[in-house]
């Protein structure tokens, strides 16, 4: 996908000293990672489907 997180970014994040960065009170290591929101709803897909339907109907009329 387009929004792929680069390997370099992963490795850079790993350079962080996780033990030192542990949050208070038993928190897991602070080692952020990008997690892009994925595209699931594509209006264009539905519109494409509608286009196919319209095309089908127009051909039948013709």
């Amino acid at each position: 996908m387009d929004q792929r997180v680069s390997q370099m970014e992963f490795e850079m994040n790993r350079l962080t000293d996780q033990t030192e960065n542990r949050g208070p009170d038993w928190a897991p290591p602070s080692a952020p990672l990008v997690m892009p929101k994925q595209e699931l709803e594509s209006r264009s897909s539905w519109l494409e489907l509608a286009d196919i339907g319209r095309l089908f109907l127009s051909r039948r009329k013709a």
Binding site: R14, Q18, P28, A31, P32, L33
Partner: peptide, 12 residues
């Protein structure tokens, strides 16, 4: 789980 990955994911 997403929250964990965002805050600690690079560690694993």
């Amino acid at each position: 789980i997403e929250d964990f990955v965002r805050t600690s994911g690079s560690a694993y």
